[in-house]
Every structure is written in C-alpha cells, then in structure tokens.
Amino acid sequence: MLIALYAVFALAATARAVVQIAVQFDEAPLAYALSLFSGLVYIAATVGLVTHRPWSRPLAWGACAIELVGVITIGIASIVDPQAFPHDTVWSRFGSGYGYIPLLLPVLGLLWLRYSRPGAEHGRSDDRSPA
C-alpha cells in the first residue's frame, strides 16, 4: 500500500508539474518548480522502496527525509506567506489539498524503513550478544 501511494504521488505530482510548467509557468514559478521537485522526490522514494540494490535503502531514506523536511517547510511557508504561493503545490499547507497524505507519507515511509531493516524482525536488534 505504501509503495502504491508513493507511485501514485510520483506520477501525479510529476505529470501535473510538467504540464503546469509547460503551460502556465509565469503564473506561479515557485509553486510549479516545487511541485516538480516534489514529484522527483516521490520518484526517488518509490525507486528506493521498490528496488533491492545496495543503494536502494539509502535512496529511500534520503528521499523520505527530504520529503518530510519539504512538506513541513513548504507547509509553514505557504501559511505564513500565501502570496508566495498563488497556486498550490503538493506540499502547500502540509498537503491539505491531498488530504494531508503528503504529510503522513514520509512519516510512514521512514517508519517502514526503520522497522523493515535487516535484523528488525521480531524485535531483534543488530546486537546479537546474549542478554
């Protein structure tokens, strides 16, 4: 479910931003550039979560962390200075236009990465010394 949500947001945010940049970039350049950036972050998170390469987990960790910082930063900025965001981004007002899923998604992604790491199953830590 988590990966499906990331894939949907990757496709939707990127496609929407590309169209907005191509058609009406001059109306809200900051918002549309941030929308494209968020789409690229969602793509990176999706790839990191889906693939099983040595670089996959670090990519997913980085993308989810950037996403969380982005949604909090843009969320605050869009409330404090709404004139800077005449058109919404995915992360405006903490993703309110998307049911706050953009705020919840990186938290879930980071939690999944933490609890799905090697050695995390059944509460086992990486420390294998006897108690």
Rank of each mutant, 00 (worst) to 15 (best):
G123D: 07
Y6A: 01
W55N: 07
G48V: 04
A10L: 06
D126V: 10
I79A: 15
P102E: 07
A31K: 00
A60Q: 05
D26K: 13
D26R: 11
L30G: 01
L5V: 14
L105M: 12
T89S: 15
A44P: 04
V107Q: 11
Q24T: 15
I72L: 13
R128L: 15
I74R: 00
L2Q: 09
A45Y: 00
P29V: 13
I21W: 04
Q83V: 11
A33V: 11
L11V: 15
G123Q: 10
A15P: 05
A84T: 13
H122W: 11
A84W: 11
A44F: 06
H52E: 13
F85I: 05
Y32Q: 05
L68R: 03
P102Y: 05
G48I: 04
D26G: 10
G123L: 08
R57V: 12
T89N: 11
V90F: 06
A31H: 00
L113Q: 03
Y6W: 14
V107I: 15
D88P: 08
F94T: 02
G62A: 15
F94H: 04
D26W: 11
S92N: 10
F37V: 11
L68G: 04
D127W: 09
T89A: 14
L103N: 10
A4P: 04
A4N: 13
G119A: 13
G95T: 06
I66M: 05
Q24I: 13
W91M: 07
V90L: 13
Y98R: 09
